[in-house]
């Protein structure tokens, strides 16, 4: 493997890379810890606008934790987060977050359209009226993910893939510039995966930044422009074309990926 442009940061302890001013989301020295052990250690990252980035790494590598800590959903021990060059608190309206589907109770008494309207809460505030125009917007977001006919369904009656699409519709309703998705393709059917990737690619075409925690290494090359590889520390970061290769995968997964498996991914030069 000879890939000169790869950034290998596995050795750690390097000086923090300067935050890219054009990045939609940039992290510097982000550290999160559950108890004694750090889950994410001193991670720098820059996720560009107008591109799709996959965050990949083994289970327990801190992928979801990285997103949650960036958003302030879980507290960070140290580190700086900036969104479009601003402190996150001032630009929350420009961020849409899609949590893991399994993180909520789908038995909650509410309907599909109601969940999508939650994406509008920031705009309407605590007591603002949810006007017909806003409801129409929520419906059009449902339509974008092919779920308009399910608007009045109870959410517990949906399949896993349908639930994921409803979550994506809620994020669309937020009309954000930065989309952070935690495993949007986990456990969904092929039709849903297609529908989601089409929406995400449309967002990218509109110039939005899309960042996904992603599990399926086989689809990284097809779906994403960039890859961010993490195993507690940042391992590598860059365009899929140059960064996503056997060397970085081995470094990220600690040799847990069999060589044959890596070959099957048909990486880099072969493609």
């Amino acid at each position: 493997m000879t890939e000169p442009s790869v950034t290998l940061a596995a050795s750690g302890g390097q000086a923090a890379a300067p935050a890219r001013p054009d990045a939609a989301l940039s992290l510097r020295g982000l550290t999160v810890s559950y108890g004694e052990k750090p889950a994410v250690f001193s991670v720098d990252a820059a996720f560009p606008a107008g591109e799709m980035t996959a965050i990949i790494g083994p289970n327990g590598a801190g992928k979801s934790t990285l997103l949650k800590a960036a958003l302030g959903v879980i507290p960070r021990l140290s580190g700086e987060v900036s969104v479009f060059g601003q402190p996150i608190e001032t630009v929350r309206g420009r961020i849409a977050y899609v949590p893991q589907r399994a993180s909520v109770d789908w038995d909650f008494p509410t309907t599909v359209i109601d969940v999508v309207m939650m994406g509008l809460y920031r705009q309407v505030g605590l007591l603002g009226r949810l006007t017909g125009a806003l409801k129409a917007r929520a419906l059009s977001c449902l339509d974008r993910v092919g779920m308009a006919s399910f608007a009045d369904r109870q959410i517990g009656q949906l399949s896993g893939g349908q639930q994921q699409r409803v979550f994506l519709a809620r994020a669309l309703a937020q009309d954000a510039d930065l989309y952070l998705l935690d495993e949007p393709f986990a456990g969904v059917d092929a039709a849903t995966e297609r529908a989601i990737i089409d929406v995400l690619k449309a967002l990218k075409a509109e110039g939005k930044a899309v960042v996904c925690v992603h599990h399926d290494l086989a689809t990284v090359r097809d779906y994403f422009d960039n890859v961010f590889m993490i195993n507690v520390r940042r391992i590598a970061e860059g365009p899929v074309r140059t960064t996503f290769n056997g060397e970085t995968l081995n470094a990220t997964y600690g040799g847990r990926l069999a060589a044959t498996h890596i070959d099957q991914l048909n990486l880099v030069e072969g493609a």
């Binding site: 949650k68 958003l71 302030g72 959903v73 608190e89 929350r92 961020i95 977050y97 949590p99 993180s103 909520v104 109770d105 909650f108 509410t110 969940v115 939650m118 809460y121 920031r122 809620r170 952070l180």
Partner: peptide, 12 residues
Amino acid sequence: TFDEGFAQALGL
């Protein structure tokens, strides 16, 4: 109550 993580990301 429904989605604490999302609520937090909204800044609530």
